[in-house]
Amino acid sequence: MLLEIAVSFFLLVGAFFTLVGAIGLARLPDFYMRLHGPTKATTLGVGGTLTASMIYFTAIEGTSLHELLITLFLFVTAPVSANLLARAALRLRLRSRAPLPEASSAGRD
């Protein structure tokens, strides 16, 4: 029973944040704002789903920690992709609601 509650909790929290990330991607007005949804919410959401899987399989089949690998990988790579995408957007000077920084400091590497 306790197991079901814990697994359901992490599943629902995970699915909620995955959905929030996608909603942010779909409805926020400019690219730099859209970037926030997937990098933060979706990453945590999948982390929640993986935690649920970890608890569930540990309970029914014995220690199952390999989901941790995917979770850690996603948390390490999300900022890297976000950074590169932001850099690409700054290079293209995509329009933004916040005033863009001057070209001299943006988009160069």
Binding site: Y32, L35, H36, T39, K40, T43, F75, V76, A78, P79, V80, A82, N83, A86, R87, L90, S105, A106, G107, R108, D109
Partner: peptide, 16 residues
């Protein structure tokens, strides 16, 4: 930069 990307309301873009 990674920490700032994942925490409150911020995405870090570009280290100069």
């Amino acid at each position: 930069a990674s920490i700032v990307t994942m925490t409150p309301g911020t995405v870090s873009c570009d280290p100069s």
